[in-house]
Design a binder for these strands. Structure first.
Length: 467
RNA sequence: GCCCCCAUCGUCCAGCGGCCUAGGACACCGCCCUUUCAAGGCGGCAACACGGGUUCGAAUCCCGUUGGGGGUGCCA
Protein backbone atom coordinates (compact mmCIF):
# COMPACT_ATOMS: atom_id res chain seq x y z
CA UNK A 1 0.00 0.00 0.00
CA UNK A 2 1.43 3.35 -0.96
CA UNK A 3 1.84 5.89 1.75
CA UNK A 4 -0.60 8.70 1.22
CA UNK A 5 -0.96 11.87 3.24
CA UNK A 6 -3.03 14.97 2.75
CA UNK A 7 -3.13 18.61 3.67
CA UNK A 8 -6.72 19.66 4.19
CA UNK A 9 -7.08 23.39 4.72
CA UNK A 10 -10.35 25.23 5.12
CA UNK A 11 -10.26 28.31 2.95
CA UNK A 12 -11.30 30.71 5.70
CA UNK A 13 -8.18 32.85 5.62
CA UNK A 14 -4.82 33.04 3.96
CA UNK A 15 -2.42 30.26 4.84
CA UNK A 16 -0.93 30.80 8.24
CA UNK A 17 2.24 29.60 9.89
CA UNK A 18 0.65 26.69 11.72
CA UNK A 19 -1.06 25.36 8.62
CA UNK A 20 2.07 25.86 6.57
CA UNK A 21 4.04 23.82 9.08
CA UNK A 22 1.40 21.08 8.97
CA UNK A 23 1.52 21.08 5.17
CA UNK A 24 5.31 21.03 5.26
CA UNK A 25 5.54 18.04 7.59
CA UNK A 26 3.06 16.10 5.51
CA UNK A 27 5.03 16.96 2.40
CA UNK A 28 8.39 16.14 3.98
CA UNK A 29 7.06 12.80 5.14
CA UNK A 30 5.56 11.93 1.77
CA UNK A 31 8.71 12.91 -0.09
CA UNK A 32 10.95 11.11 2.36
CA UNK A 33 9.17 7.79 1.93
CA UNK A 34 8.22 8.16 -1.71
CA UNK A 35 4.54 8.51 -0.91
CA UNK A 36 1.85 10.83 -2.19
CA UNK A 37 1.05 14.27 -0.86
CA UNK A 38 -2.50 15.34 -1.64
CA UNK A 39 -4.46 18.50 -1.02
CA UNK A 40 -8.14 18.56 -0.15
CA UNK A 41 -10.31 21.61 0.41
CA UNK A 42 -12.47 21.44 3.48
CA UNK A 43 -15.13 23.98 2.72
CA UNK A 44 -18.12 22.45 4.44
CA UNK A 45 -18.72 25.73 6.21
CA UNK A 46 -20.19 27.78 3.38
CA UNK A 47 -20.51 30.81 5.63
CA UNK A 48 -16.81 31.20 6.20
CA UNK A 49 -15.24 29.58 3.17
CA UNK A 50 -14.18 31.89 0.39
CA UNK A 51 -13.35 30.72 -3.07
CA UNK A 52 -10.58 33.19 -3.72
CA UNK A 53 -8.89 32.01 -0.57
CA UNK A 54 -8.49 28.57 -2.11
CA UNK A 55 -6.32 30.12 -4.76
CA UNK A 56 -4.40 32.10 -2.19
CA UNK A 57 -3.63 28.90 -0.29
CA UNK A 58 -2.47 27.23 -3.49
CA UNK A 59 -0.29 30.22 -4.31
CA UNK A 60 1.38 30.09 -0.94
CA UNK A 61 1.99 26.35 -1.16
CA UNK A 62 3.52 26.96 -4.57
CA UNK A 63 5.69 29.73 -3.23
CA UNK A 64 6.91 27.44 -0.46
CA UNK A 65 7.65 24.79 -3.06
CA UNK A 66 5.32 22.19 -1.55
CA UNK A 67 4.12 20.49 -4.68
CA UNK A 68 1.10 18.25 -4.34
CA UNK A 69 0.31 15.17 -6.36
CA UNK A 70 -3.33 15.87 -7.17
CA UNK A 71 -2.89 19.35 -8.53
CA UNK A 72 -5.92 20.46 -10.46
CA UNK A 73 -8.00 17.67 -8.96
CA UNK A 74 -8.14 18.71 -5.36
CA UNK A 75 -11.37 17.36 -3.88
CA UNK A 76 -13.68 19.99 -2.46
CA UNK A 77 -16.06 18.90 0.19
CA UNK A 78 -18.65 21.37 -0.99
CA UNK A 79 -19.09 19.22 -4.10
CA UNK A 80 -19.70 16.02 -2.19
CA UNK A 81 -22.87 16.98 -0.36
CA UNK A 82 -24.83 14.04 -1.76
CA UNK A 83 -22.34 11.46 -0.61
CA UNK A 84 -22.33 12.89 2.87
CA UNK A 85 -26.10 13.16 3.00
CA UNK A 86 -26.45 9.51 2.13
CA UNK A 87 -24.06 8.59 4.88
CA UNK A 88 -26.04 10.65 7.36
CA UNK A 89 -29.26 9.01 6.25
CA UNK A 90 -27.85 5.55 6.65
CA UNK A 91 -26.53 6.42 10.07
CA UNK A 92 -29.98 7.65 11.10
CA UNK A 93 -31.64 4.58 9.57
CA UNK A 94 -29.29 2.37 11.56
CA UNK A 95 -30.10 4.21 14.74
CA UNK A 96 -26.51 5.43 15.09
CA UNK A 97 -27.51 9.04 14.65
CA UNK A 98 -30.64 11.01 15.38
CA UNK A 99 -32.38 14.30 14.82
CA UNK A 100 -32.22 16.92 17.53
CA UNK A 101 -34.01 20.25 17.81
CA UNK A 102 -32.47 21.44 21.04
CA UNK A 103 -31.34 25.01 21.24
CA UNK A 104 -27.99 25.75 22.72
CA UNK A 105 -29.56 27.81 25.48
CA UNK A 106 -31.95 25.01 26.41
CA UNK A 107 -29.14 22.51 26.74
CA UNK A 108 -27.18 24.89 28.92
CA UNK A 109 -30.21 25.57 31.09
CA UNK A 110 -30.88 21.86 31.58
CA UNK A 111 -27.25 21.19 32.46
CA UNK A 112 -27.19 24.01 34.91
CA UNK A 113 -30.41 22.95 36.56
CA UNK A 114 -29.13 19.42 36.90
CA UNK A 115 -25.71 20.54 38.02
CA UNK A 116 -24.07 18.85 35.05
CA UNK A 117 -20.99 20.04 33.19
CA UNK A 118 -21.46 21.69 29.79
CA UNK A 119 -22.02 19.56 26.71
CA UNK A 120 -24.94 17.99 24.94
CA UNK A 121 -27.07 15.92 27.29
CA UNK A 122 -28.61 13.43 24.89
CA UNK A 123 -32.04 14.90 25.33
CA UNK A 124 -33.33 13.98 21.86
CA UNK A 125 -31.72 10.61 21.61
CA UNK A 126 -34.90 8.62 22.14
CA UNK A 127 -37.39 11.13 20.83
CA UNK A 128 -37.45 9.79 17.31
CA UNK A 129 -37.67 13.21 15.67
CA UNK A 130 -37.81 13.46 11.90
CA UNK A 131 -34.79 15.09 10.32
CA UNK A 132 -35.91 18.49 9.05
CA UNK A 133 -34.68 22.00 8.50
CA UNK A 134 -35.18 22.71 12.19
CA UNK A 135 -33.07 19.82 13.41
CA UNK A 136 -29.45 18.91 13.38
CA UNK A 137 -28.30 15.31 13.26
CA UNK A 138 -26.20 14.04 16.11
CA UNK A 139 -24.11 10.92 16.24
CA UNK A 140 -25.03 8.63 19.11
CA UNK A 141 -21.77 7.89 20.88
CA UNK A 142 -21.35 4.62 22.78
CA UNK A 143 -22.25 4.90 26.44
CA UNK A 144 -19.23 3.01 27.66
CA UNK A 145 -15.90 1.60 26.58
CA UNK A 146 -13.12 3.68 25.18
CA UNK A 147 -11.71 4.84 21.89
CA UNK A 148 -7.96 4.61 21.66
CA UNK A 149 -5.31 4.93 19.01
CA UNK A 150 -1.55 4.94 18.74
CA UNK A 151 -0.23 8.32 17.80
CA UNK A 152 3.23 8.28 16.28
CA UNK A 153 4.18 11.43 18.13
CA UNK A 154 2.38 10.87 21.41
CA UNK A 155 2.10 7.17 21.92
CA UNK A 156 -1.21 5.68 22.99
CA UNK A 157 -4.01 8.14 23.49
CA UNK A 158 -7.37 7.04 24.79
CA UNK A 159 -10.72 8.60 25.53
CA UNK A 160 -13.58 7.23 27.60
CA UNK A 161 -16.70 7.09 25.49
CA UNK A 162 -18.68 8.32 28.46
CA UNK A 163 -16.92 11.65 28.02
CA UNK A 164 -17.81 11.94 24.36
CA UNK A 165 -21.00 13.87 23.81
CA UNK A 166 -23.41 13.16 20.97
CA UNK A 167 -21.84 15.53 18.48
CA UNK A 168 -23.41 17.21 15.46
CA UNK A 169 -22.68 15.63 12.10
CA UNK A 170 -25.23 17.50 10.00
CA UNK A 171 -26.52 21.04 10.35
CA UNK A 172 -30.14 22.06 10.02
CA UNK A 173 -29.43 23.27 6.48
CA UNK A 174 -28.42 19.75 5.54
CA UNK A 175 -24.69 20.36 5.20
CA UNK A 176 -22.38 18.18 7.21
CA UNK A 177 -19.70 19.18 9.66
CA UNK A 178 -15.96 18.75 9.48
CA UNK A 179 -16.04 15.63 11.64
CA UNK A 180 -18.06 13.61 9.18
CA UNK A 181 -16.67 14.97 5.93
CA UNK A 182 -13.12 14.69 7.17
CA UNK A 183 -13.47 11.10 8.34
CA UNK A 184 -15.25 10.02 5.18
CA UNK A 185 -12.82 11.69 2.83
CA UNK A 186 -9.73 10.38 4.54
CA UNK A 187 -11.18 6.92 4.10
CA UNK A 188 -12.31 7.56 0.53
CA UNK A 189 -8.95 8.95 -0.50
CA UNK A 190 -7.06 6.10 1.07
CA UNK A 191 -5.10 8.33 3.41
CA UNK A 192 -2.66 6.17 5.35
CA UNK A 193 -1.23 8.77 7.70
CA UNK A 194 -3.14 11.64 9.22
CA UNK A 195 -0.78 14.40 10.30
CA UNK A 196 -2.34 17.49 11.76
CA UNK A 197 -2.09 19.94 14.60
CA UNK A 198 -2.50 18.90 18.19
CA UNK A 199 -5.52 21.16 18.44
CA UNK A 200 -7.40 18.42 16.62
CA UNK A 201 -6.38 15.66 18.99
CA UNK A 202 -9.70 15.80 20.81
CA UNK A 203 -11.69 15.35 17.64
CA UNK A 204 -9.85 12.17 16.73
CA UNK A 205 -12.00 9.76 18.78
CA UNK A 206 -15.12 11.21 17.19
CA UNK A 207 -13.70 10.80 13.72
CA UNK A 208 -12.68 7.27 14.53
CA UNK A 209 -16.14 6.40 15.82
CA UNK A 210 -17.64 7.76 12.61
CA UNK A 211 -15.20 5.89 10.42
CA UNK A 212 -15.90 2.66 12.15
CA UNK A 213 -19.65 3.23 12.00
CA UNK A 214 -19.44 3.89 8.27
CA UNK A 215 -17.05 1.04 7.69
CA UNK A 216 -14.31 3.31 6.46
CA UNK A 217 -11.67 0.61 6.40
CA UNK A 218 -9.07 0.33 9.12
CA UNK A 219 -7.85 3.25 11.18
CA UNK A 220 -5.18 5.42 9.62
CA UNK A 221 -1.96 6.13 11.47
CA UNK A 222 -2.14 9.39 13.37
CA UNK A 223 0.56 11.91 14.10
CA UNK A 224 -0.55 14.98 16.01
CA UNK A 225 2.00 17.72 15.56
CA UNK A 226 2.95 20.01 18.42
CA UNK A 227 1.34 23.41 18.29
CA UNK A 228 3.39 26.43 17.32
CA UNK A 229 3.05 28.94 20.11
CA UNK A 230 3.72 32.65 20.20
CA UNK A 231 4.18 35.23 22.89
CA UNK A 232 3.00 33.90 26.20
CA UNK A 233 3.24 30.31 25.02
CA UNK A 234 -0.22 30.39 23.56
CA UNK A 235 -1.32 28.99 20.26
CA UNK A 236 -0.48 31.38 17.43
CA UNK A 237 -3.38 33.72 16.90
CA UNK A 238 -4.23 36.20 14.21
CA UNK A 239 -4.73 38.93 16.77
CA UNK A 240 -1.48 38.65 18.66
CA UNK A 241 0.94 37.26 16.13
CA UNK A 242 2.02 37.86 12.58
CA UNK A 243 0.82 34.56 11.20
CA UNK A 244 0.09 34.99 7.49
CA UNK A 245 2.79 33.33 5.44
CA UNK A 246 2.32 35.86 2.67
CA UNK A 247 3.30 38.60 5.10
CA UNK A 248 6.70 37.00 5.41
CA UNK A 249 6.94 36.75 1.67
CA UNK A 250 6.17 40.46 1.38
CA UNK A 251 8.64 41.28 4.11
CA UNK A 252 11.46 39.74 2.13
CA UNK A 253 11.80 36.23 3.46
CA UNK A 254 12.89 33.48 1.11
CA UNK A 255 10.61 30.44 0.78
CA UNK A 256 13.54 28.17 1.47
CA UNK A 257 14.15 30.04 4.71
CA UNK A 258 10.53 29.66 5.78
CA UNK A 259 10.58 25.96 4.94
CA UNK A 260 13.89 25.41 6.67
CA UNK A 261 12.88 27.30 9.80
CA UNK A 262 9.44 25.74 10.02
CA UNK A 263 10.99 22.29 9.70
CA UNK A 264 12.95 23.06 12.86
CA UNK A 265 9.80 23.64 14.89
CA UNK A 266 9.06 20.29 16.49
CA UNK A 267 11.79 18.44 14.69
CA UNK A 268 15.54 18.48 14.32
CA UNK A 269 18.05 16.68 12.09
CA UNK A 270 20.14 13.94 13.69
CA UNK A 271 23.42 15.54 12.72
CA UNK A 272 22.56 18.94 14.19
CA UNK A 273 23.00 20.84 10.94
CA UNK A 274 20.09 23.22 11.07
CA UNK A 275 20.36 25.38 7.99
CA UNK A 276 20.54 23.23 4.88
CA UNK A 277 18.91 22.55 1.51
CA UNK A 278 15.41 21.13 1.61
CA UNK A 279 16.54 17.98 -0.19
CA UNK A 280 18.72 17.20 2.80
CA UNK A 281 15.88 17.87 5.17
CA UNK A 282 13.77 15.38 3.28
CA UNK A 283 16.58 12.88 3.59
CA UNK A 284 16.78 13.36 7.34
CA UNK A 285 13.09 13.62 8.13
CA UNK A 286 11.27 11.01 10.12
CA UNK A 287 7.93 10.90 11.91
CA UNK A 288 9.54 9.31 14.94
CA UNK A 289 11.78 12.32 15.32
CA UNK A 290 8.92 14.70 15.93
CA UNK A 291 8.92 16.32 19.35
CA UNK A 292 5.57 16.26 21.20
CA UNK A 293 5.91 19.51 23.12
CA UNK A 294 4.76 22.89 21.80
CA UNK A 295 7.32 24.91 19.88
CA UNK A 296 7.74 28.66 20.29
CA UNK A 297 7.94 30.70 17.14
CA UNK A 298 11.11 32.81 17.18
CA UNK A 299 11.17 35.60 14.58
CA UNK A 300 14.85 36.27 15.33
CA UNK A 301 15.88 32.78 14.42
CA UNK A 302 13.75 32.87 11.29
CA UNK A 303 15.56 36.09 10.34
CA UNK A 304 18.89 34.42 10.97
CA UNK A 305 18.02 31.48 8.75
CA UNK A 306 16.84 33.90 6.09
CA UNK A 307 20.08 35.85 6.31
CA UNK A 308 22.09 32.69 5.87
CA UNK A 309 20.07 31.64 2.83
CA UNK A 310 20.46 35.12 1.38
CA UNK A 311 24.20 35.07 1.83
CA UNK A 312 24.49 31.69 0.17
CA UNK A 313 23.00 32.98 -3.08
CA UNK A 314 25.27 33.88 -5.97
CA UNK A 315 24.91 37.53 -7.12
CA UNK A 316 22.62 36.75 -10.02
CA UNK A 317 20.30 34.65 -7.92
CA UNK A 318 20.32 37.37 -5.31
CA UNK A 319 19.36 39.97 -7.91
CA UNK A 320 16.55 37.72 -9.09
CA UNK A 321 14.96 37.35 -5.66
CA UNK A 322 15.58 40.99 -4.80
CA UNK A 323 14.03 42.28 -8.02
CA UNK A 324 10.47 42.74 -6.69
CA UNK A 325 11.84 44.78 -3.80
CA UNK A 326 14.19 46.73 -6.02
CA UNK A 327 11.23 47.70 -8.16
CA UNK A 328 9.99 49.72 -5.18
CA UNK A 329 13.28 51.54 -4.72
CA UNK A 330 13.31 55.35 -4.41
CA UNK A 331 15.17 55.78 -7.70
CA UNK A 332 13.90 56.19 -11.24
CA UNK A 333 13.70 52.70 -12.75
CA UNK A 334 15.88 53.67 -15.73
CA UNK A 335 18.66 54.68 -13.36
CA UNK A 336 18.91 51.22 -11.88
CA UNK A 337 22.05 49.51 -13.15
CA UNK A 338 22.10 45.72 -12.94
CA UNK A 339 25.86 45.50 -13.30
CA UNK A 340 26.45 47.98 -10.53
CA UNK A 341 24.06 46.05 -8.32
CA UNK A 342 25.67 42.74 -9.20
CA UNK A 343 29.10 44.14 -8.33
CA UNK A 344 27.82 45.30 -4.97
CA UNK A 345 25.67 42.23 -4.28
CA UNK A 346 28.03 40.18 -2.07
CA UNK A 347 28.58 43.16 0.21
CA UNK A 348 24.84 43.73 0.44
CA UNK A 349 24.12 40.07 1.07
CA UNK A 350 26.21 39.92 4.20
CA UNK A 351 24.44 42.99 5.57
CA UNK A 352 20.74 42.25 5.26
CA UNK A 353 18.42 39.80 6.94
CA UNK A 354 15.49 40.35 4.60
CA UNK A 355 15.10 41.49 1.02
CA UNK A 356 13.08 44.46 2.18
CA UNK A 357 16.30 45.94 3.55
CA UNK A 358 18.07 45.83 0.20
CA UNK A 359 16.92 49.07 -1.46
CA UNK A 360 18.09 51.24 1.42
CA UNK A 361 21.48 49.56 1.20
CA UNK A 362 22.09 50.56 -2.42
CA UNK A 363 19.85 53.55 -3.11
CA UNK A 364 22.74 56.05 -3.21
CA UNK A 365 24.13 54.21 -6.23
CA UNK A 366 21.09 54.90 -8.38
CA UNK A 367 19.87 58.24 -7.10
CA UNK A 368 21.09 61.55 -8.54
CA UNK A 369 21.57 62.69 -4.96
CA UNK A 370 21.81 60.52 -1.86
CA UNK A 371 19.05 60.66 0.72
CA UNK A 372 20.72 62.47 3.57
CA UNK A 373 20.01 60.94 6.95
CA UNK A 374 19.79 63.78 9.45
CA UNK A 375 21.34 62.00 12.38
CA UNK A 376 24.20 60.79 10.22
CA UNK A 377 24.90 64.24 8.86
CA UNK A 378 24.86 65.74 12.33
CA UNK A 379 27.18 63.12 13.74
CA UNK A 380 29.76 62.87 10.99
CA UNK A 381 29.69 66.33 9.45
CA UNK A 382 27.86 69.11 11.27
CA UNK A 383 29.11 68.22 14.73
CA UNK A 384 32.46 66.95 13.58
CA UNK A 385 35.27 69.53 13.76
CA UNK A 386 37.48 67.52 11.45
CA UNK A 387 34.84 67.22 8.75
CA UNK A 388 35.57 70.40 6.73
CA UNK A 389 39.26 69.61 6.40
CA UNK A 390 38.59 65.96 5.62
CA UNK A 391 36.05 66.80 2.93
CA UNK A 392 38.12 69.45 1.20
CA UNK A 393 41.13 67.18 1.47
CA UNK A 394 39.22 64.35 -0.13
CA UNK A 395 38.02 66.57 -2.97
CA UNK A 396 41.58 67.46 -3.73
CA UNK A 397 42.99 63.99 -3.34
CA UNK A 398 40.20 62.15 -5.15
CA UNK A 399 40.49 64.45 -8.13
CA UNK A 400 43.69 62.84 -9.23
CA UNK A 401 43.93 59.49 -7.49
CA UNK A 402 43.73 56.37 -9.57
CA UNK A 403 40.07 55.31 -9.46
CA UNK A 404 40.06 51.95 -7.78
CA UNK A 405 39.28 50.74 -4.28
CA UNK A 406 42.88 50.21 -3.24
CA UNK A 407 44.00 53.68 -4.27
CA UNK A 408 40.98 55.33 -2.69
CA UNK A 409 41.68 53.36 0.45
CA UNK A 410 45.28 54.55 0.44
CA UNK A 411 44.36 58.15 -0.29
CA UNK A 412 41.85 58.25 2.55
CA UNK A 413 44.31 56.61 4.90
CA UNK A 414 46.91 59.29 4.07
CA UNK A 415 44.34 62.00 4.47
CA UNK A 416 43.47 60.72 7.92
CA UNK A 417 47.10 60.46 8.97
CA UNK A 418 47.61 64.07 7.99
CA UNK A 419 44.99 64.97 10.55
CA UNK A 420 46.00 62.40 13.14
CA UNK A 421 42.95 60.28 12.48
CA UNK A 422 42.51 56.58 11.93
CA UNK A 423 40.84 55.38 8.78
CA UNK A 424 37.56 54.75 10.55
CA UNK A 425 37.25 58.38 11.59
CA UNK A 426 38.65 59.72 8.36
CA UNK A 427 36.16 57.98 6.12
CA UNK A 428 33.09 58.93 8.14
CA UNK A 429 32.31 62.36 6.65
CA UNK A 430 33.14 61.12 3.18
CA UNK A 431 30.78 58.21 3.59
CA UNK A 432 27.93 60.41 4.76
CA UNK A 433 28.53 62.95 2.02
CA UNK A 434 28.42 60.29 -0.66
CA UNK A 435 25.93 57.72 0.66
CA UNK A 436 23.87 59.83 3.05
CA UNK A 437 24.43 57.50 6.01
CA UNK A 438 27.09 56.50 8.51
CA UNK A 439 26.52 52.82 7.81
CA UNK A 440 26.43 50.96 4.57
CA UNK A 441 28.46 48.76 2.27
CA UNK A 442 32.25 49.23 2.07
CA UNK A 443 32.93 52.78 0.96
CA UNK A 444 35.79 52.50 -1.49
CA UNK A 445 34.14 49.74 -3.48
CA UNK A 446 31.02 51.87 -3.64
CA UNK A 447 33.00 54.91 -4.83
CA UNK A 448 34.56 52.84 -7.57
CA UNK A 449 31.11 52.04 -8.87
CA UNK A 450 29.81 55.57 -8.44
CA UNK A 451 32.57 57.15 -10.48
CA UNK A 452 34.86 60.08 -9.88
CA UNK A 453 32.57 62.84 -11.07
CA UNK A 454 29.58 61.86 -8.98
CA UNK A 455 31.77 61.34 -5.95
CA UNK A 456 33.46 64.72 -6.23
CA UNK A 457 30.14 66.33 -6.86
CA UNK A 458 28.68 64.94 -3.66
CA UNK A 459 31.76 65.83 -1.66
CA UNK A 460 31.61 69.41 -2.85
CA UNK A 461 27.98 69.66 -1.94
CA UNK A 462 28.69 68.51 1.60
CA UNK A 463 31.87 70.49 2.08
CA UNK A 464 31.73 74.03 3.46
CA UNK A 465 31.72 76.76 0.83
CA UNK A 466 35.24 77.48 -0.37
CA UNK A 467 36.99 80.33 1.37
C1' G B 1 -15.82 22.52 35.72
C1' C B 2 -14.81 18.24 32.58
C1' C B 3 -11.67 15.81 28.79
C1' C B 4 -6.92 15.48 26.39
C1' C B 5 -1.84 16.76 25.72
C1' C B 6 2.90 18.68 27.30
C1' A B 7 7.25 19.51 30.79
C1' U B 8 16.05 19.91 29.18
C1' C B 9 19.39 26.90 28.77
C1' G B 10 15.06 33.10 27.50
C1' U B 11 13.79 30.28 22.61
C1' C B 12 14.45 25.93 19.08
C1' C B 13 16.77 21.23 18.77
C1' A B 14 20.12 16.87 20.77
C1' G B 15 19.88 13.30 24.72
C1' C B 16 15.81 7.60 23.92
C1' G B 17 19.57 3.81 31.68
C1' G B 18 25.99 4.38 32.32
C1' C B 19 29.79 8.03 26.90
C1' C B 20 26.19 14.16 30.84
C1' U B 21 31.26 17.97 34.46
C1' A B 22 24.02 17.79 29.91
C1' G B 23 25.78 19.05 23.57
C1' G B 24 24.50 22.35 19.14
C1' A B 25 21.71 26.70 17.19
C1' C B 26 19.18 31.65 17.83
C1' A B 27 19.29 35.72 21.09
C1' C B 28 22.46 38.25 24.62
C1' C B 29 27.54 39.75 26.55
C1' G B 30 32.94 40.09 25.83
C1' C B 31 37.42 39.79 22.71
C1' C B 32 39.73 39.38 17.77
C1' C B 33 39.49 40.91 12.67
C1' U B 34 38.12 45.56 10.44
C1' U B 35 37.04 51.61 6.15
C1' U B 36 31.30 52.28 8.90
C1' C B 37 27.92 48.44 9.52
C1' A B 38 27.67 43.55 8.83
C1' A B 39 29.80 38.84 7.98
C1' G B 40 33.59 35.68 10.14
C1' G B 41 36.74 33.66 14.30
C1' C B 42 37.30 32.86 19.61
C1' G B 43 35.19 32.92 24.46
C1' G B 44 31.19 33.73 28.11
C1' C B 45 26.21 33.63 30.42
C1' A B 46 22.43 30.05 30.67
C1' A B 47 18.44 24.30 31.61
C1' C B 48 17.19 18.47 33.20
C1' A B 49 9.92 21.93 37.40
C1' C B 50 9.26 19.31 42.28
C1' G B 51 8.49 14.76 45.27
C1' G B 52 8.41 9.66 45.51
C1' G B 53 9.68 5.07 43.45
C1' U B 54 12.30 1.15 39.93
C1' U B 55 17.66 0.20 39.21
C1' C B 56 24.31 -1.21 40.93
C1' G B 57 23.27 3.38 38.13
C1' A B 58 18.09 8.07 35.92
C1' A B 59 17.66 14.14 32.24
C1' U B 60 16.36 9.35 30.29
C1' C B 61 11.47 4.19 33.01
C1' C B 62 6.88 4.35 36.56
C1' C B 63 3.55 7.13 39.97
C1' G B 64 2.10 11.64 42.11
C1' U B 65 2.32 17.01 42.65
C1' U B 66 2.86 21.57 40.45
C1' G B 67 2.96 24.41 36.18
C1' G B 68 1.70 25.33 31.06
C1' G B 69 -1.23 24.45 26.79
C1' G B 70 -5.34 22.55 23.78
C1' G B 71 -10.46 21.15 23.46
C1' U B 72 -15.23 21.65 25.33
C1' G B 73 -19.77 25.45 18.52
C1' C B 74 -25.37 23.95 13.74
C1' C B 75 -15.85 26.47 13.22
C1' A B 76 -12.19 23.46 11.56
Amino acid sequence: MTTRVRFAPSPTGSLHLGSARTALFNWLFARSVGGEFLVRIEDTDAERSKDELVQSVFDTLDWLGLDWDNRGQEPRQSTRADVYRQAVESLVADGRAYACDCLRADVDARNEAAGRPPGYDGHCRERGLEVSDTTVVRFATPGDGEVAFDDVVRGRVSFECANLEDFVIARSDGTVTFLLANAMDDAAMGITHVMRGEDLLNTTPKGLLLRRALDGGGDPIFAHLPLIVGEGRKKLSKRRDDVAVENYRNAGYLPEAMVNYLALLGWGPDDGVEVRPVEEIIGQFSLEGINPSPAGFDPKKLAHVNAEKLRALDPKAFLAVAEPFLADGPWTPEDFDRDVFLAMAPEVQSRVKTLAEVPAMVDFLFLPEPIMDEASVAKAITNNDAAPALLTGAIESFATVEWNADSLHGATLALGEAHGLKLGKAQAPIRVAVTGRTVGPPLFEALTLLGRETTLDRLRRAAPPAG
